[in-house]
Amino acid sequence: MREFEFLEPQTLTEALAMMSEYEDDACVYAGGTALLLAMRQRMLSPGFVVSLGKLDELREITFNPAEGLRIGALARHSDVARAPDVQAHYPMLAGMAGGLANPQVRNQGTIGGNLCYADPATDPPSCLIAMDAEVTIAGPGGERRLPMREFVVDFFTTALEPGEILTHITLPPPRPDRTGLYRRHLRTPAEHRPVANVALTFRDVNGVPEDVRLVIGAAVPVAQSMTRAEDFLTARAITLDVAAEAAAMVAEDIDPISDGRGEEAFRRQVVRAITRRILAEAAGLNWKDAAA
């Protein structure tokens, strides 16, 4: 690892100023779980590491029924998982954050760092897209807000412009008729990162889904909304056959990654399985008795 200067701004303004000053030679440091690995492997060698550690306001998780949930970018996965408001109003998110990686990563890695690094083999993006999340970004020119689905652009690439800092993530207020489920799959039980995951939210209109969001993550370079399956599922009562048909559709529509964690065909098969399962689960059906 190359030597670097560790900077600890006391305010967001100061942090942004440092980012502008050192430009390409600066890097934001949140929990360091991704950044330090990249620096150790010398994929990144910033001369200035700008820590967000002193910016306590970025850690906050606040909720109000009118505006919804606001998660500071510096909130750790375990903070998100344990926050009473998240558990009460967004159990899908709490479950996702409490189940990703391993305890070490959950206690050190932040949700902001996770999104900004844009590693495909992660959990939050698909879940947040399905929950209609938005991200707020602070930059030299002020603040801007983007829907989560526009934030991650490609493999390890986000919509962040140089010098910008992700400050928080917001979720719309919970709706009593809207439900959501999240499911991740590990290639083997000893893996930390998902080989594929699926997030599902919909409005339950007398047992029939409306406004369906079905998003696949980890198996694809960027979490992908499965629009054909979403349309197919809209206003259609979910049976095991419907679940299987939608799952097959999703497996066909994704554009999977092929790497050491799984080749394309394997990823499609896993995506199909977990999609069928999440749909069955959403309808209270038992997927275990017979394969599709």
Binding site: H185, T188, P189, Q269, R272, A273, I274, R276, A291, A292
Partner: peptide, 8 residues
């Protein structure tokens, strides 16, 4: 798991 090949 006969759908994903995972063995536990």
């Amino acid at each position: 798991d006969t759908e994903t090949g995972q063995v536990r």
